[in-house]
């Protein structure tokens, strides 16, 4: 059980790492947001699932409540994080920010 939760947290951290590298390395506004929005949500889900499993190794009513609270965090982040990404992309589109393409290099990086 502990091994599974450690594995889950490690995979979650890997997603976080990918997201951070993506924010720095990707060429323009939209692709950076893609990295930040998708990978953070996934990383949070995996690491929180790992923590919930770790809490549940010592099975009692109080710990089940803690695990439910941890999973509630995930539920709220799953609702809010895509919405926040959507709002920022929406603002970018309305501000006529050109997406990056292969032949028209550069776009307009921030």
């Amino acid at each position: 059980m502990n091994l599974i939760s450690a594995l889950l947290i490690a995979i979650g951290l890997f997603f976080f790492l990918g997201g951070s590298i993506g924010i720095i390395r990707l060429p323009d506004f939209y692709s950076r947001l893609h990295a930040a929005g998708m990978l953070d949500t996934m990383g949070l889900f995996l690491s929180m699932a790992g923590l919930a499993l770790y809490v549940l190794t010592d099975f009692s009513f109080a710990n089940v409540l803690v695990a439910i609270k941890i999973m509630l965090i995930v539920v709220f982040v799953f609702i809010t994080s895509p919405t926040a990404t959507h709002a920022i992309v929406d603002a970018g589109v309305r501000a006529v920010r050109e997406p990056w393409t292969k032949d028209k290099k550069g776009g307009n990086p921030i």
Binding site: F76, I79, T80, T83, H86, A87, D90, R94
Partner: peptide, 17 residues
């Protein structure tokens, strides 16, 4: 400012919580 239906309904969902 424009307001968006997705953002509106998500915040309506979350504000009570």
């Amino acid at each position: 400012v424009p307001c968006d239906i997705i953002i509106r309904s998500t915040s309506r969902l979350l504000i009570p919580f």
